[in-house]
Every structure is written in structure tokens, then in C-alpha cells.
Simulated assay, not measured.
Amino acid sequence: MSENIANKIFKTLSPNAKLLDRNVAHGQIIKDDRTIDECLCLFFKSPNSYTGEDVIEFQTHGGDGVPNLVIRYLIEEGARIANPGEFTYRAFMNGKIDLLKAEAISSLINSQAESAEHHSFDRLSTNIAKKLNNIRELAILVIAQLEARIDFPEEDIPKIEKQKLLDEFDTVINKTNDILETYKSGSLYLKGLRIMIMGEPNVGKSTFLNNIISDERSIVSEIPGTTRDIVNSDIYIKGIRCNFFDTAGLRDADNLIEKKGIDKALEKIPSSDLILLLLEKTSNFQYIQKIVENVPRGKIIYLINKCDLIVKDETWEIEKKLLEEKIKYIKISSKNG
């Protein structure tokens, strides 16, 4: 918004007062000789603003009516609503911030969990940019040493130490890999953890989800195949967003709709971060293992459900199978906790 537009609707309460760079003015929003609000006006003269351009900021009273009325009057005088991310885009184009900082600001604005906000702020504080710049400077130094000896062989340049050069290359590679390793964990902080709850029909998946989120989100029934579409719900654990997906029971279904639900569940396996595989006394171990045979074992947590039904000194067949395959598991009760 230009200074001219602001002057059309804002009048300072102090006679002959003007808008000064990085100063606060107390005044009124006036339209057609009618006072709309008494507010504060801040003026940031280029380049001393977030975008590097002239910026004017009005601090009006809250609610819906007054701010919307002020916006409407500004638009009538020639201003417009900024596009999503436009201020950050302008700041980037005007050289006020780099691309990494622009992305960090976007992540911070869109973060949905405390951990995501912390991660975005770390990026915003230029920690990543500093590390990348250090790597860049080291790489340039290494390349310069090589090019100097290639381009000026006749000059009296000390002979390069091969091992020292290789060590410097290794340092560049290792530091780059260290940053790349943070991508996956950073993605989990920003986007959340996608957790699939899988298992055969009536194994207790829906009850498990309902108990986790403390809500009757999934329908619980003794009728096999009750859950046919994917039901999801978000909760926050220690500031991290966890998105749980209750899926259709895994079996060779004849019903077309149920079969589509199972296919949708299987399609989501590659994009999930963690699979909670629920088993119980009658689970078909061979069938389940065939479904998840291509899934990394570290991505699956095996849960033997309905352990409240196990009688003393009894070992279910499914537990014996897991022990034979040396698969770690946890005994739980979706019903009783």
C-alpha cells in the first residue's frame, strides 16, 4: 500500500504531524468525513521494511467489523488484498531474504504443531544457511587449489598434498550428508507422522484408534468388514503431530466395496511412516507376512491385541510364530488399555 493511499483515509490527531520512517502515529481512519476507528499507524520507509519497499501498517481495534471496513475502504482507494506469500516473495525478490529463509517462513506459518514451529524457527534463524555457506566456501577452496595448479603449471606453487586434498573432499561430502540426513526428521516435524493401523477383520483396529484419540471416531462392531474406508484422526504427542489411519481389515474379500477399501489400505503402505500391525489369537501369520513382506521391518510394530483374554501360562500360536521368526512384539488390550 502506498503512502498516498494511507494519507487519504488516515489523519493524525496531532496537527501537522507527518508519517515518519519507523515511527508510530496516533490518528483516525476517516471516510467521507466519518470517523471509522481510532488507531495506530506505522510507516516503514524503503529499504527499512520486511519487503524492502515502503510499508504502512494500521493497528485497529479488533473484531470483524472495523478491520473489514478499513480493508474495504483501502481497496476503494486503490489498494488490493495481497496474494498468499506475496510479502515474503517481495522480500526475496528485493534481496531481503534468501530462498532458505523464505521456505522457513512458509513452514513456520503453516506449522501445525509445536515441534514444527521449533524446527521452522531453527531454519529461520539461518542455521542451515550458515552451514551451507561454510560447505560452499570449503568446496571453493578445494577447487581453487586444483585449478591453480592446472592453470598455472609454470608458477612456483607448492605441490599439493594428495591425502590432505582427499580429506578436504571427504569433509565436504560428510558435512553435506549431515544436512541431508536432517531432511527426513525435519519432514516428520513439519508434516507429522503418518501411522497406519493394519490387521485382519475384528482384530481390534477401530477400538485401538478410538482409545488413542479418546473419541468414537471409528465404528466398532463384531461384524467382520465394518471398516471399509480409511478413517483418520490427528493427535499431538509431545508436540509432534501424529496422523492415525484406521484401515479396512485385511482378508480375501468377495464384497467389491470391501475389496476396494483393502486396496486403498495397501496403497497407503509406501507413503506411511509407521505401521501398527495388530494381531490376535486366530491371526493368519503367513497371510499377514505376505502382505508386508516388502515393508522394512523397522517400519512395523507388531502388536498382539486382546491380551486380556490370554489365560495364565497360555501362549497363543501367533506369539509362537513371532518368536520363531525372531520378531519383536508388544502385548496390548485395545479394550482395557
Rank of each mutant, 00 (worst) to 15 (best):
D254W: 15
I197Q: 02
F58M: 14
K264G: 01
E200Q: 12
I257H: 00
V295T: 06
E155Q: 09
F208L: 09
L13G: 11
M198F: 05
I213P: 01
Y89S: 08
M196P: 00
I81C: 14
A148V: 05
L303G: 08
V142E: 13
G27C: 01
H119F: 08
M198W: 06
I275Q: 00
D33L: 03
D215R: 14
I128D: 07
Q28L: 08
R297Y: 09
I179A: 03
L309Q: 07
K264S: 12
L274G: 04
L279F: 12
I97H: 04
S49F: 09
N174V: 04
F244P: 00
A265D: 00
P153Q: 15
A102D: 00
F43T: 00
I332W: 02
K299H: 12
C41I: 15
N305S: 14
I318F: 12
N243W: 01
I179P: 01
S106H: 10
L309I: 04
A6R: 02
Q163Y: 11
N336V: 09
I330A: 11
T226L: 07
Y236N: 08
N94E: 02
I310G: 05
D252C: 03
L40Y: 10
I173V: 09
A116M: 07
A253S: 12
K184R: 08
K326R: 14
Y89E: 14
